[in-house]
Amino acid sequence: MFARIVLSTVAAAMAAGLVWQMAEAQQKVEPKGVVAYRIAVMRTLGAQMLAIKTALTETPEFEDNLVWHAQIVHDASKLLVDLFPKGSNEAPSAALPVVWEKWSEFEAAAKRLEELSAKFVEVAKNGDPQATLAAFGQLGKEGCSSCHDTFRKKQG
């Protein structure tokens, strides 16, 4: 029996190693079509969030631009669901099949970003950096991370 445990564990480890190597190989593929477009839009979101954080914590001279960045996030949030036509997760996409298995939950996650970013635009307009930073944290955790948590492959 001991030998069986050893063998099955070794086999499992080898299979895991193989899957891992395949995943590694996948990362080398350049994204195309819908996947490339969607990744570009997501990176636009990331760039706005980084700009907002930098303006709030390091470069107050750009604080006047906060509303502009916030508005881009809000406008883009309305595009998200259309970037995920059924089954569009060919390599190297990190979108999980659960996007389409739980489509209404996915739509709700995009809606959540839409609502939070609308609220964030208003907070940014008020011009209180402390309040804006707090709202930024909520936007990131509940707007971005909570969707990545369920619908995106882990960033190994």
């Binding site: 990331g46 990131g140 991370s145 990545h148 995106r152 882990k154 960033q155």
Partner: peptide
């Protein structure tokens, strides 16, 4: 800052179990 709000240095946001560890 990542441990506070989940933002990586490139502006991306944490997912997977880490989103819950942070939240």
């Amino acid at each position: 800052f990542y441990l506070k709000v989940g933002m990586r240095p490139d502006g991306d946001f944490a997912g997977g179990e880490m989103a819950r560890v942070i939240e």
